[in-house]
């Protein structure tokens, strides 16, 4: 049941991308029924009333699906609860008197815009480089013309569940974006519709990813941080597909 707790917050404040930042300390009283972001809302309301600028933190759907929110809470991306985004985290995970350190998701390619807000647009650039199936509107055949084995469709969904929040990069000691990229690749490579462009897509997306992010050393931190629990196996699929893409004679890929 709900109770009122007091938490000690250590929040990263940084005025702009070129400014230097530091931690500021705050205390906040809150009921355990509240969500983590509602706790920050309340803090911001108090700051505003005191004439201090509120903490910049992004969130949108607050249902754990849009991927807008995401901060490092006590050294864990999206905080201590497994498979949970920051917005779905509730204060019942914390106890009275806890210190909570809040930092933005960090990586060189995720520059801080302000306080806890970072720029994750390199993810869009990865998608732009090939994360699609080229089909013009109106050019599609009947949906049931191509049966897809249920297992394959399920795997495609597991991969496609990625919300693009960036927790994988934030949690990775190498700032690698393998989990994000491989999830999108596995989604499309699992489906018959994704086959024609499979090798080209793998090549361009991996190479774009490497322009921005580090190299995977198979720690597995990304999977632990991932609110959608995207599987590490997809990274293995991506590695294999990438090597195949480099070796394969694509002119023969129409043959069975």
């Amino acid at each position: 049941m709900s109770e009122i707790i007091t938490v000690n917050l250590k929040i990263w404040r940084q005025e702009g991308p070129e400014k230097s930042g530091c931690f500021e300390e705050y205390t906040q009283k809150i009921t355990t029924e509240a969500s983590f972001l509602e706790m920050i809302d309340l803090l911001n309301e108090d700051l505003n009333n005191q004439g201090l600028e509120p903490v910049a933190i992004e969130s949108d759907c607050r249902e754990g699906i849009c991927g807008t929110c995401g901060v490092m809470i006590n050294g864990q991306a999206h905080g201590p609860r497994k498979a949970t985004t920051t917005c779905q985290l509730h204060m019942r995970e914390f106890s009275d008197g806890d210190e909570i350190v809040i930092e933005p998701f960090r990586a060189i390619s995720f520059p801080v815009i302000r306080d806890l807000v970072v720029d994750r647009s390199p993810f869009d650039q990865i998608i732009e480089s090939g994360g699609y199936i080229s089909v013009n509107t109106g050019a599609a055949s009947d949906a049931n013309l191509t049966p897809v084995p249920k297992e394959a469709a399920d795997q495609a969904f597991d991969a496609a569940a990625c919300i693009g929040c960036g927790a994988c990069v934030a949690a990775c000691p190498n700032s690698a974006a393998q989990l994000f990229t491989s999830a999108k690749l596995a989604h499309m490579a699992s489906l018959p519709q994704g086959q024609p462009e499979r090798w080209k897509r793998t090549e361009t997306m991996v190479e774009t990813m490497e322009e921005f992010f580090g190299s995977c050393t198979n720690h597995g931190e990304c999977h632990e941080a991932c609110p959608k629990e995207i599987n590490l196996d997809f990274i293995a699929f991506m590695n294999r597909d990438y090597m195949k893409a480099k070796v394969k004679n694509r002119a023969l890929s129409g043959q069975r």
């Binding site: 990263w12 930042g21 050294g75 930092e103 990586a107 990775c172 000691p173 690698a176 931190e221």
Partner: peptide, 30 residues
């Protein structure tokens, strides 16, 4: 590869310099 990762993650915070997270880092799977 180590160098590549270092270039992608260290100095990530404008001020904190060498460490990726000043507030510390909690490893779960690694």
């Amino acid at each position: 590869l180590k160098e590549m990762s270092r270039k992608s993650s260290l100095n990530a915070s404008f001020q904190s310099g060498e460490k990726k997270y000043e507030g510390g880092r909690e490893y779960i799977a690694a």
